[in-house]
Write a protein that binds this DNA or RNA. Structure first.
Lengths: 229, 229
DNA sequence: CTTAAATTTAAACACGCGTTTAATATTGGT
DNA sequence: ACCAATATTAAACGCGTGTTTAAATTTAAG
């Protein structure tokens, strides 16, 4: 407010000069945009991040989003594709060896460790799947939940047929409970942290995972006596 | 597209005439705004609803939001205050008789029945509590979760001390699991519905509640034998 | 009867959004 | 050496947003 009184807008000078830049190698605008988009979209959600914010974070201009990805949504989709590729492979992997897995506890550990190690997954689910107009919901239902849920249900079904689970257990409800126990602690981290005094560090997470696996196992096995109606 | 070719904007004629209206009683603009705000804000979230949408739904103009509530956020807060008043009383009620309640299953049933009967609660939690910049998060942590969680933990603590729960049970984890089981099924309704084939009708919800209460009870009681490490 | 207060309409405001465009500079192929 | 393709900047575009304002009209009070 001291020297630039009558300048209408102060603009920090662009580092890059006009026109096609020299072959500077490691100045990759396209992936800089993808990186910035990952950081911002995954944390705050599609709608809450502006194209200008991403451009600034990638040290370029919004026009580059149009140039490389057409629209903001195009950038979002490209970013998402790259981000969930590892998760897709993980699911495909557990799907291929579906016959071998028998213990729900193994599934619980896998799910929770993945969610704990990749905090952006929970944020993405809140912003783009559970929210009314989430732009990832359809894809998520088709490619992620739609493949994982039948796997879980079949696993539970087999365990029940094998006698290790209660005969009267509804596998759909049991699958829902399993997902609830695995996902909600991370989705509700911003509330559960302060309210329950959780730190969400690695040691605590391992204890939570053990607790969860044991709770689900004890809650579904045939061995447990009913306490009352 | 036939007769109004050169009219720049067709505007449906306002029903109300200019100036201060006669004392017509049941034409209450203020509560019409609150009603419209409830319907729209609670379903779609604060950011995804425009002041104009609310004004149209209340059959008035955005200027009335300014007149009665100052800003869109003021309207949101007034609406929210009115909406959560019953929930607040419910919590206060269960807080006053905290000494009497002993069975976690009672809490589970209460929570899930409330969530099932008021679908807007889950939507509100997704949009305004779990989302990064949710405008209800701070209040929710202070007034809702911050009061309910200690109650749940104390209840579990007493049950454990009384011998009905496992001695090695971490009450914070158990409280988190209880909340997960109660809340997530409704928060994730848009996914769980199609993926698990749930209809979320009343009969099904009663079975889900029974399943959940039993799962949690069996998963936390001292009676259950460990199956293995 | 006069006048101040209350309530509403229609119009505009300033701003930020995603997107587009024109100009410009560099590259690599011929 | 030329030239088309490529990559970038700066500026603008049109639109929708929340908000504000001026005028208009009625009520209620003095």
């Amino acid at each position: 407010m001291s020297s630039s009184a009558q300048l209408p807008r102060r603009r920090r000078p662009r580092l890059r000069s006009r026109g096609r830049p020299p072959v500077d190698a490691d100045s990759d605008v396209r992936s800089a945009l993808l990186d910035a988009a990952s950081r911002l979209f995954l944390k705050h959600g599609f709608e809450r991040v502006t194209a200008r914010q991403i451009a600034v974070a990638a040290d370029t201009t919004p026009a580059m989003i149009h140039y490389y990805f057409g629209t903001k949504l195009g950038l979002f989709r490209a970013m998402l594709e790259r981000a969930i590729a590892p998760v897709r492979e993980l699911i495909a992997g557990s799907l291929s060896q579906a016959g071998a897995v028998v213990d729900p506890a193994v599934l619980i550990r896998m799910h929770m460790r993945t969610a704990a190690a990749n905090p952006w997954i929970a944020t993405l689910i809140v912003n783009e799947v559970l929210a009314e107009k989430g732009r990832f919901r359809a894809t998520f239902i088709r490619d992620v939940a739609g493949r994982q849920a039948p796997l879980v249900m079949e696993l539970l079904q087999r365990a029940r047929a094998g006698g290790s689970l209660r005969k009267d257990l509804d596998v759909r409800f049991a699958a829902l409970s399993l997902m609830s126990l695995c996902i909600f602690p991370f989705v509700a981290r911003a509330v559960a942290g302060p309210v329950l005094g959780l730190k969400y560090d690695e040691e605590e997470m391992e204890r939570l995972i053990a607790h969860t696996a044991r709770l689900f196992a004890a809650g579904t096995t045939a061995a447990s006596r009913e306490h009352h109606a």
